[in-house]
Computed example of a mutant assay.
Amino acid sequence: MTDYGHPITFGLSLDPSAHELDATRQLAQAADDGGLDYLAVQDHPYQPGHLDTWTMISHLAARTSRINFLTDVADLQLRPPTMLAKAGASLGVLTGGRIVLGVGGGASADAVAAMGGTRRTGGDTVAYTTEALQIMRRALAGDVVRFAGAHLAVEGYRGGPVPPAPVPLWLGGQRPRMLTVAGRHSDGWISPLNIYVPPEEVPSRQQIIDEAARAAGRDPAVVRRIYNVIGTIGGSGGPGGTGLVGDAQLWVDTLTRWAVDLGFDTFIFWPTASPRSQLRAFTERVVPAVREQVREFRGQR
Rank of each mutant, 00 (worst) to 15 (best):
D3N: 04
G5S: 07
L14A: 05
E20P: 01
A23I: 01
Q26G: 04
G35F: 09
L39Y: 02
A40N: 05
A40K: 03
H44A: 12
H44N: 05
G49D: 13
R63H: 14
N68T: 12
T71A: 11
A74W: 05
D75W: 08
Q77G: 15
Q77T: 11
R79N: 13
T82L: 15
G88K: 04
A89F: 12
S90Q: 14
G92D: 08
V93M: 13
V100H: 05
M115T: 05
G122P: 00
L133M: 10
Q134H: 13
R146H: 15
A148W: 13
A148K: 15
G160L: 07
P163Y: 11
A165P: 02
P166S: 11
L171I: 05
R175V: 14
L179A: 08
V181A: 11
R184Q: 15
W189Y: 07
S204I: 10
R205C: 03
E211I: 09
A213S: 10
R214Y: 11
A216C: 12
R218A: 10
P220G: 05
V223P: 04
N228D: 13
I233S: 01
G234S: 06
G235E: 06
G240L: 04
G243R: 06
V245S: 02
A248Q: 07
V252I: 11
D253C: 00
D261E: 15
L262I: 07
D265K: 02
P271C: 06
P271M: 06
A273W: 11
P275D: 03
S277H: 10
Q278L: 01
P288S: 06
V290E: 00
V290T: 02
V290R: 00
Q293P: 00
V294E: 01
R295I: 03
